[in-house]
Design a protein around this nucleic acid. Sequence first.
DNA 1: AGTATTATTGCAAATAATTCGCAATAAATC
DNA 2: GATTTATTGCGAATTATTTGCAATAATACT
Lengths: 126, 126
Amino acid sequence: MIGQRYTKTRKNIFKALSNSKKPITAQEIFNSLKNNDEKINLASIYRNLDLMEKSDLISVILFGEGKKRFELKEENSHHHHFFCENCGDIEDIKMNEDKILANIKKTKFLIKEHKLEFFGLCPDCQ
Amino acid sequence: MIGQRYTKTRKNIFKALSNSKKPITAQEIFNSLKNNDEKINLASIYRNLDLMEKSDLISVILFGEGKKRFELKEENSHHHHFFCENCGDIEDIKMNEDKILANIKKTKFLIKEHKLEFFGLCPDCQ
DNA sequence: AGTATTATTGCAAATAATTCGCAATAAATC
DNA sequence: GATTTATTGCGAATTATTTGCAATAATACT
């Protein structure tokens, strides 16, 4: 579990993350819960997202929009993303990473994580 | 050229970027120029970095620190980064990307760019 | 179940990065 | 050198995120 107490706020943040097919921002989680008439505070969302990241329950995704996006880490769900520079559409990209990882493992760094993001135009925007 | 005028401010930002061996933040560019007694304004740095990015002269690097880092794009200098989660050390990582790119080219997306960042511990922090 | 303990929340205020409006300045052009 | 207008500096505004603190609610204890 995150922290030590399984609170309503935490359940709700979890729910919002599961319901989203794309990585979402703290503000988007807030809006989605507000729309469901949940009493929730943005600061609590940020605090919980921090904890969830530290507990390795979520990943942080960065597209240079000036804010962070979050998504649940699930079993065998490792993937990367495509971000459309025109419309902001986000799609998951899965790929065989043996080569990437084999290369980096040879270095003197202890790798815990990697993020690979693609930028370009989605089919609709080409 | 960026924009249409080759100003002192632009020369200085260029210089600051060239002098740095790692991707640096807007604030770091500002500090470095201030230390050299250059009259420079943070807003102008941001404006020029925007232009330079649009002109494809620099890349934006994101490590989730809550700010952007920038580095000059030079001929044949394409590479990725390692970011030490403990001390913040940044190192360049070069690798053969044929496989990554071959895979992604098969998709319906038009890829213009990709960013691959590694996170973990540098030799000193292990 | 009732009470005690303390992690967690809500709220408001503080930070930090980045952006914007506008008048002043300085490159490039004539 | 005078003119044009892109660019700068400055201050204020915006946006994302963080923090302090008293109030609240999950769990543990009896």
